[in-house]
């Protein structure tokens, strides 16, 4: 029943996605398969479909509770300066942010305004934060055909429908998750993401981007149960050099499924953020 519903919803979404396409190009011919053991669609592309869960790593990794740079998930609760680079709870090293002077001043200011984290207010997380949720918590369902790869995130009910025809980004369109256009390079799905609205944060620690954000993502199936995800984030008005991040997605047992996530249902946390830790005002009784 549920699968039927999901398929119906996805079908409607995929049909609607074409509204934003300015042109369609025919996909390149599938390359010779270098790894015959990978699951593949009938056309030969790697089959990424399934339910996946992020392992440690990325901007957030197991980096939790970080307004002052403290990583409570690290052994011993490591402290840092909030700009990444501490490692991520046993996963790959977290990327290091290097801000322009103006952006660094803005970041420091946002450290005092944690209540403004858009995701804490249930907005869409942006890219790569959509996938870079705290590890091992919210799964993502990947559904795919010969023309699209769709990411259905449990977190925030975020949906990314990515055409894989290398079509251009639309003009005069800006969005929380930007606009994603994919192409296959051999067995690697490469996704170019642009057209961001510039309002997203990369994590809970005030690290941010603006409208000039651009992301190049790579999804590569390493084996049946592992996807290597890599992202390069550039934003010349925020960072002095591109930021690289990578982590793996592990396949979730088939009995699991995406669950409903109605973020606004009972948000009662922001009112308790204290002024010195990112809140609007102190509420000591």
């Amino acid at each position: 029943m549920r699968r039927v519903y999901l398929a119906a919803v996805l079908g409607a979404l995929l049909g609607g996605a074409s509204l934003l396409q300015l042109s369609a190009q025919s996909a390149a011919a599938p390359p010779v398969a270098p790894n015959a053991s990978l699951p593949r669609l009938p056309g030969g592309r790697p089959d990424l479909q399934g339910l996946w869960l992020k392992s440690a790593g990325g901007f957030q990794g197991l980096f939790i509770g970080s307004l002052d740079g403290t990583n409570f998930a690290a052994p011993g609760g490591g402290r840092g300066d909030g700009r990444g680079g501490r490692g991520a709870g046993g996963g790959p090293p977290a990327p290091r942010y290097e801000y322009t002077p103006e952006a660094e001043a803005e970041r420091l200011d946002r450290l005092k305004r944690g209540y403004e984290d858009p995701e804490a207010r249930c907005h869409l997380p942006g890219v790569p934060r959509a996938l870079d949720q705290p590890a091992a918590l919210y799964p993502v369902q990947i559904i795919q055909d010969e023309k699209y790869v769709a990411l259905l995130h449990e977190a925030m009910h975020d949906v990314r429908i990515i055409p894989t025809d290398n079509s251009p980004h639309p003009k005069n369109y800006w969005a929380w998750d930007g606009d994603s256009r994919g192409r296959w390079e051999g067995d690697t799905l490469v996704v170019d993401v642009s057209n961001f609205n510039g309002r997203t944060w990369l994590d809970m620690a005030g690290n941010f981007v603006d409208e000039n954000e651009h992301v190049l993502e790579r999804f590569r199936l390493l084996d049946r149960d592992t996807i290597l995800y890599e992202a390069t984030v550039t934003d010349p008005t925020v960072f002095v050099k591109p930021i690289e991040m990578r982590f793996t997605l592990k396949r979730v047992p088939a009995e699991q499924q995406i669950l409903e996530y109605s973020c606004l249902e009972g948000e009662r946390s922001l009112q308790h953020f204290t002024e010195e830790d990112g809140g609007k005002k102190r509420r000591v009784k």
Partner: peptide
């Protein structure tokens, strides 16, 4: 159990 995380910062609200 891996510490469950959430959509907002623990440190802004609670005190370890």
């Amino acid at each position: 159990v891996t510490p469950a995380a959430a959509h907002h910062s623990f440190a802004a609200e609670f005190d370890f």
